[in-house]
Design a protein around this nucleic acid. Structure first.
Length: 511
RNA sequence: CGCGGGGUAGAGCAGUCCGGUAGCUCGUCGGGCUCAUAACCCGGAGGUCAGGGGUUCAAAUCCCCUCCCCGCAACCA
């Protein structure tokens, strides 16, 4: 049984995750569920990045300790992941002892072997805010540069800091990226990494600070705490029981290297340059693939608090259900280009695809099966027709797309037979066949075709909508959880239940 | 000369790599059906494919130029 290790990036625990962040977890979950479906030994890791200045500040503002603060954010995040039916195997928090202890050892080892060195971090420093800003961040004022946060003057300041010697790995990184076309996905991002960062000259990056306290201590140099990269990125191996001394846990030996790191396009750089650089330094194999997914935009705009256009998953789930929410983001997000969500688009997509096409097909098919055959549809011979041929084709297309992480294509392929089957009903007119007793076997063939189409779809769409597909399968008289090679049954014994996807009525006030 | 992504029917998009009667979804108009969640099925209208020039028998698609929009600052994936 092939193993499949997949991760999300770990969201920063400074605030509640919105639907865009949540999309990443849902996407990763769907991929993980797909791999379980086809029989892989899947390990799915997610978690939270809980250190750093912003958390320290947010906690202060909230009047709680940083630990109390991240405890709250992480609990909320986990409840959102649960509502979204994101079923991870492990959840790592960077404030956990198991993580911190390993990271300290890693940091020390990297320092001892010369991959981490002490230097100076320079930048524009805002004294009242106690924060550094880069040249591009500061606001140009009449009397000098100003803090982008508070508007007060900033000073060019230097601070002692440790750096990771990424420059030493530039050639190896470039060679690896060139030699492994699948390493960076989507493809166009590969050139961006090569041309935008490696070729102009890779800079060493800062891995410690002395200007804030909320971080993992550099134990051989009190006063320094780790700054994001070594701390956060290493979660992918600390969670598996990696040991810088070589005494790895069972999970690490079994699941590393990672099959795919799923993350947002904005942090692709850190995962394709910084992280591999660190792994090379530690002598660990690189992840097989890093996928930088596009962003979910609110209409055409970036989702942001300041624009006040942020949507959170719980709100959608409470109103429209977990299946619609998952379906929307997975169906709507392209592979390489930003997707979009608005309430109108959401409602339209769910009504059209789920209520009108899929839900209604289930409803009319199962109702007819009960009406004409008391729910037992067992034809004497197995029908063969265009619809069933399409089912087989869609299954292959779906699989090919899923293996490439082309979720939108996979979902669209899975839905194709549903649309075809609705037409099939009009073509065959089962209500006419039902009036002629000599056509009973024909009628059975029609209904079997419809039910079998629904069964096939329930398998493909299970990773996307586990709850609704489980319900559909129950109505079809099938086990709730499908397997990829589930054979088409000789006959169906169905029982109608609640409508799977009630139509959503969008009220004026909600738009 | 900063980098990148876009500009195709009212809306959202595919097609552009590998030139050959312009396609999908939604909306709209007309028709059909009655098994179904006012759902489903069929048909119509609607586009000088941002603009200009070039190559070609033929360009949304290849080449050159111009214009416009969106990211690359921030909370943020």
């Amino acid at each position: 049984m092939p193993k499949f290790y997949i991760t999300t990036a770990i969201p920063y625990a400074s605030q509640r995750p919105h639907i865009g962040n949540t999309y990443e977890a849902i996407f990763t979950d769907a991929v993980a569920r797909y791999h379980k479906l086809v029989g892989d030994d899947v390990y799915f890791l997610t978690g939270t990045d809980e250190h750093g200045l912003k958390v320290e500040r947010a906690a202060e503002k909230a009047g709680v300790t940083p630990q109390q603060f991240v405890d709250g954010v992480t609990a909320d995040l986990r409840s959102i992941w649960d509502m979204c039916m994101v079923e991870y195997d492990d959840f790592i928090r960077t404030t956990e002892t198991r993580h911190k202890e390993t990271v300290k050892k890693m940091f020390k080892r990297l320092f001892e072997q010369g991959d981490i060195y002490k230097g100076a971090y320079e930048g524009w420093y805002c004294i009242p805010d106690e924060a550094f800003h880069t040249e591009s961040q500061v606001v140009k004022g009449e009397t000098g540069n100003l803090c982008p946060d508070c508007g007060r003057p900033v000073e060019w300041t230097s601070e002692e800091a440790y750096f990771f010697r990424l420059s030493a790995y530039a050639e190896r990184l470039e060679a690896h990226i060139e030699a492994n076309p699948a390493f960076i996905q989507p493809d166009n991002r590969k050139n961006e990494m090569l041309n935008g960062y490696i070729k102009p000259g890779l800079q060493d990056f800062c891995v410690s600070r002395t200007s804030f306290k909320w971080g993992i201590e550099v134990d051989f140099d009190p006063g320094h705490v780790m700054y994001v990269w070594v701390d956060a990125l290493s979660n992918y191996i600390t969670a598996l029981g990696y040991d810088p001394g070589g005494n790895h846990g069972e999970l690490f030996s079994k699941y590393w290297p990672c099959d795919v790191h799923v993350l947002g396009k904005d942090v692709l750089r850190f995962h394709t340059l910084y992280w591999p650089g660190m792994l090379m330094a530690l002598g660990i194999p690189l992840p097989k693939q890093v996928f930088g997914h596009p962003w979910l935009l609110m209409g055409g705009d970036k989702m942001s608090k300041s624009l006040g256009n942020v949507i959170y998953a719980p709100e959608l789930i409470e109103k429209y259900g977990v299946d619609c929410t998952r379906y929307y983001v997975l169906r709507e997000m392209p592979f390489a280009r930003d997707g979009s969500i608005t309430r109108e688009q959401f409602v339209s997509r769910c009504n059209t695809d789920l209520a009108n096409d899929l839900g209604n097909l289930a409803s009319r098919s199962i109702t007819m099966a009960e009406k004409y055959f008391d729910g037992n549809v067992s034809p004497e011979t197995t029908p063969q027709n265009e619809v069933l041929t399409l089912c087989a084709a869609s299954r292959e297309q779906y699989r090919a797309a899923m293996d490439k992480l082309a979720m939108q294509t996979a979902v669209t392929e899975a839905m194709a037979p549903i649309v075809r089957a609705n037409r099939f009903i009009d073509e065959t007119m089962p209500w006419v066949l039902a009036k002629d007793e000599s056509k009973a076997e024909d009628l059975r063939h029609v209904l079997y075709t419809l039910l079998e189409t629904l069964r096939a779809a329930s398998v493909l769409l299970y990773p996307v909508m586990p709850l609704a597909m489980g319900r559909l399968r129950a109505q079809l008289g099938l086990p709730e959880i499908p397997v990829w090679d589930e054979p088409a049954p000789d006959g169906f014994s169905v029982k109608r239940g609640e409508n799977l996807f009630p139509r959503i009525i969008l009220e004026e006030a909600e738009t």
